[in-house]
Amino acid sequence: MHRVAPDEVRARIGEPDALTRMKKFGHIDAHVRRFIAHSPFLTMATADAAGNADCTPRGDYPGFAKVLDERTLAIPDRPGNKLADSFTNLAENDGIGLLFLIPGMIETVRVNGRAWVTDEPDVLARMQTEASTPMLAIVVEVAEVYFHCGRALLRSRLWDADSQALAAEAPTMADVVADLVGGDVETITKHVRAGYRELF
């Protein structure tokens, strides 16, 4: 397959306009703070020292990612699959890229920076839900914040109610597990559902 050289890519895409460049900030301003306070979901991209990249979903109540000040964010570590891919990557390479989404909103917010892990009680206290407090949080030192336009979400019809019919056609977690380890889909579905009850 033909590989397009990096300078050729730029030539074909063209340069961003002035407004687009203006939407890039070096800090979390009042609008972005308000956006993050209403976002229940983000994707977190990290890579190891060799550049092997990974992207994981994180979600909780809106504002679960806490803005500590205009250059610092903290994201709680909730129980997940214990693969700890993000932690392993951050130990080798502290670069991080976040994409915040708000249901119903086509614009997204991108935050890039450097990250490390903390167990600071004052930070964890702000992330308590019901009966649980996270053991760890990821602190992001913000280098770049960008208010991203809504074209991708418009084209993808991400928030259209009709789009949810797609889920019925996709493989379920139980389908995947049944193919991997055997067993009947119905039993595995029950296990998966039981697991999903333990959210925190």
Partner: peptide, 13 residues
């Protein structure tokens, strides 16, 4: 000061 999102929301947002 250690708001989990209740008082902070009312004050700020």
């Amino acid at each position: 000061r250690l708001s989990r999102g209740g008082s902070e929301y009312i004050h700020r947002f």
